[in-house]
Design a protein around this nucleic acid. Structure first.
Lengths: 223, 223
DNA sequence: CAACTATTCAAGTGATAACTTGAATATGTG
DNA sequence: CACATATTCAAGTTATCACTTGAATAGTTG
């Protein structure tokens, strides 16, 4: 039968979606876009690459259907094509954490020494929020907080965190969260807060994972 | 900060898991291993590649933690490292189907003209099985049926299907299933049965997806 | 232990990928 | 319409990948 070539073509096409996520730079892009739309220049800055190179990565992701673009005046904004793409990236990360030994070492190297940075699961956090038992800080840049945040969270971007810290109750526990499990902001925040003698832990996921799990959020009114 | 290099290394490592699935041949391998363990030679035959090349693909998948190997005498058997890897592959397929336009055309080319091959969802099938409303045929090779199959299914490998067909009731509907959504057996079976004037449809997924969804199965007793 | 089989390793080749540089395009502004 | 800005395209370089071929290794059998 002539199906040999057809089978190869089909699986090549299916695999090309995985291949699109198979570059560290494109993975960073998808991880970032899970927060929301960004312009090409913003993305380039965030991943420390030239604009031309970033644009090519974005075009490739768009060809594979993982992102979509929208022109607004002179800028082009890219975003994930669907929620499902964010889930795909989450599953990739999950398999990597479970099965690739080096990942946890590299995560420590990137996030900083994690001794002393304890984590809270989303489940536990939701329970304690319901009991009013905990102070929740969103330590991402304020624009991201405004676009959407966990219900009950207070915005405390890292540059302002030191001053916010002085207003926090010393007896209640503080939980910080940011973009995702591999986002440094929350780790930095927890270290800063603990240095000031506060009880602080980080949420083990970020805002996109929380929202995808269907847990309570507050999102920007669509104007 | 020196974290630039650490961030690159972390995301490269996470992305390498996706990259491992980013080759059509390795995707075929993972798709096949979702059925159960296979020796290197069996895998090579199934994906129409040389044994040496197949072995190298398998070693790479093993390095990335997606498969594990077990030596039995002179042969080495490979299998998925965990159920989670099967889910990862399913999510990749799902995103590809939703967002890559060419996939459905290539699927038609591989599976054959699909006009007339109607599908049944797992949900509908489970309901109708509970009502005893339908005859369910597992059209994979018999060894795979023996390793595990949908509860209530009868084994009817393609080579034997023609003779089985003559024993089937003409009034009840028949549903065929095989390895997965991109497995040709079920499509071939449905065409054969319909040519004989029987009412037949295919399940839109395969055995691994059915089992992962927690629907009723019968599995081989672990001796 | 020699012969055999299944698998893995090593070296080589052509194709593809990532990134750079510089030019081209598209949109908005004086 | 000249000019500025944001993005994309095209060409070129170096590294990596998929596959082949032939040899090496590990386990089994006479």
């Amino acid at each position: 039968m002539a199906s040999g070539a057809a089978k190869v073509a089909l699986f090549d096409s299916l695999a090309s979606v995985a291949q699109a996520l198979g570059s560290g730079r494109r993975a960073e892009i998808v991880d970032l876009l899970a927060q929301g739309e960004r312009s090409v220049e913003e993305i380039a800055t965030e991943i420390s690459q030239s604009v031309a190179n970033t644009s090519q990565h974005l075009r490739l992701l768009a060809r594979k259907g993982l992102v979509r673009s929208r022109r607004d005046g002179t800028r082009v904004f890219y975003g994930l094509a669907s929620e499902r793409v964010g889930e795909l990236w989450a599953v990739v990360r999950d398999v990597a954490v479970r099965h690739v030994a080096e990942v946890s070492g590299l995560a420590d190297a990137y996030l900083g020494e994690r001794a002393g940075v304890e984590q809270v699961s989303a489940e536990e956090l939701e329970e304690r929020l319901a009991r009013g038992d905990v102070v929740l800080l969103d330590v991402r840049p304020e624009l991201e907080y405004r676009a959407g945040h966990i219900a009950g969270a207070r915005s405390a971007p890292l540059p302002r965190l030191a001053s916010v810290a002085s207003t926090l109750p010393r007896r209640r526990e503080i939980v910080a969260y940011c973009r995702g499990p591999y986002c440094v902001y929350a780790d930095d925040a927890v270290r800063l807060l603990r240095d000031q003698g506060l009880k602080a832990r980080r949420l083990d996921v970020g805002f996109p994972e929380w929202r995808r799990a269907g847990r309570p959020v507050e999102v920007e009114a669509t104007s």
